[in-house]
């Protein structure tokens, strides 16, 4: 399991990196953490002619406030995001997703942008970001563009990025003010730390009367791209999100799913379990919102 030969470039700046991407020639892939790309190269399922290493580029690193929300540089390492007090406070759903991503060794290398751009249907970071209605910023020598993540993630392992474009930032909307927020990710996997068979993300905001004023729900692993459960969100907004209401509303996600059979689970399993898993995520999120000190 040795990768096919390739050329390796470590550009000094984002501009240089974009120049490299725009050059004609061998298939060029961006590498940052490489935690998904390198195994595919080792198995020769991917064989880029050239790797452009963006890991060290300052322009792509770090988590900060901006654009009315939180801006996460694409090359931000997952472990750094996991430790970020800003992310925990302002983007609790993404923070809740991170411990489910791989293992400590892979989170020490893998990046937020890498996971989003890889666009695995079961990936937790993509799931949380989609649930949060994130946007992404792409860059190329032709200039930057910004689009909704749901328009970026067009299919399983497929994005709307052109060959010369690079994902440079993930933009997370600000959490709503004045609400008690709770967030949770629940998943089924063959074993802890594995790719999820099925994953659910929920973020809830309760006003001081305990009424649900903000809701973000999504399910991954049961469709080519994680789906946001908008009908369920609408059904629960303005309610107290009690157990029965949650059970009822989360069922509304089922028709959105396009599940498949594989070695880990059947399509019928995914379809049957997804609403219940989403309900669990939401119940956990609501508990956290009600007792925020946890």
């Amino acid at each position: 399991m040795k990768a096919a030969p390739f050329e390796y470039v470590r550009p000094a700046s984002l501009a240089d990196a974009l120049e490299l991407l725009a050059e004609p020639g061998p298939e060029t892939r961006i590498i940052a953490g490489g935690q998904s790309l390198v195994p595919m190269m080792a198995m020769r399922l991917a064989r880029p002619g050239r790797l452009v290493d963006i890991a060290g580029l300052d322009a792509l690193a770090g988590i900060g406030r901006g654009d009315g929300g939180i801006v996460v540089g694409a090359a931000t390492v997952q472990a750094e995001a996991e430790r970020s007090p800003l992310l925990a406070a302002e983007a609790p759903l993404l923070a809740a997703a991170l411990p489910h991503v791989g293992h400590v060794q892979t989170r020490n290398r893998g990046t937020i942008g890498g996971s989003v751009a890889h666009c695995d249907p079961a990936a937790e970071i993509l799931l949380a970001a989609l649930a949060m209605r994130a946007e992404v910023e792409l860059a190329s020598v032709r200039g930057p563009r910004r689009l909704a993540l749901r328009d970026f993630a067009v299919g399983a392992m497929m994005t709307a990025a052109e060959d010369d474009e690079m994902l440079v930032r993930v933009l997370l909307p600000a959490r709503p003010a004045g609400l008690a927020i709770g967030a949770a990710v629940r998943e089924v996997s063959a074993r802890a730390g594995d790719f999820a068979v099925l994953a659910a993300a929920a973020e809830i905001g309760l006003d001081e009367d305990g009424v649900c004023r903000h809701l973000r729900l999504a399910v991954g692993g049961a469709s080519p791209v994680p789906v946001t459960a908008e009908a369920a969100e609408r059904a629960l907004l303005g309610t107290r999100a009690d157990t029965d209401a949650v059970r009822e509303a989360t069922r509304l996600v089922a028709p959105l799913l396009e599940p498949w059979d594989d070695q880990r689970a059947s399509a019928s399993y995914r379809r049957r379990v997804a609403p219940g898993l989403l309900a669990r995520a939401l119940e956990t999120a609501a508990e956290r919102a009600r007792s925020p000190e946890e």
Binding site: R191, A192, Q263
Partner: peptide, 16 residues
């Protein structure tokens, strides 16, 4: 053959 890697052939970790 569907179990050609250690990702597909699921051996227990310290969690299992």
């Amino acid at each position: 053959f569907l179990s050609g890697t250690l990702a597909d052939y699921v051996m227990p970790t310290a969690h299992e």
